[in-house]
Amino acid sequence: MKSSIATIVLATGLVFAVLTLAARLSDVRLPGNQQGYEPVQPIAYSHRLHAGELQVDCLYCHSGAEQSRHAGVPPAGVCMNCHGFVTTSLGALRAEDELAKQEGREPRKLISPELAKLYNAMGLDERKPDPSQAQPIAWTKVHNLPDFVYFDHRAHQQAGVRCQTCHGPVETMERVRQFESLSMGWCVNCHRQANEIGVAGKPVNASIDCATCHY
């Protein structure tokens, strides 16, 4: 009798343990896998707004993807192409205009707190512009491959692989998140598939030699 109770207790415990583990199984990953990594950035830049709503092309900012191994984070100067004029959101501007009209005064110049960080970085402090105070922005790298992997954006961009294939729907992300596992198995799978079905309707030669990425 005693032993059957013990068996039941143990069996229940085992089932419970398996279920709990199974639920957490999706979190189990290989060391170095950072899928889902979504660090806070020094400036709350929204890809959803820029790439999604405003439909700015990925390559406008990440122009390195065409010419270099690295797509790169855009220099602050690229931001200034637009944000030299756009200093805050349209909504905030309209509200200020509205308010100014009601109060019968000139609308104040508005700068969003996030863009203020950009201007500070450029040394464009409103009161006293001082280029010597310029400090580059230290973004946190999201997609981080190990040091023994040499990924090249050029080749993929040239072959017609969409950015979203690896980076996921960045245009819907408020803050960028590592969407795929970026593991070797995941890379090689895609290369194999590409060799069979091509990329964007074109046949490609996606090498699965080790030395394609490891040297």
């Binding site: 790169g72 602050a76 580059p136 946190t140």
Partner: peptide
């Protein structure tokens, strides 16, 4: 955590 520090200009 790794940083990516682009040019300003």
């Amino acid at each position: 955590v790794e940083r990516a520090i682009p040019f300003l200009d």
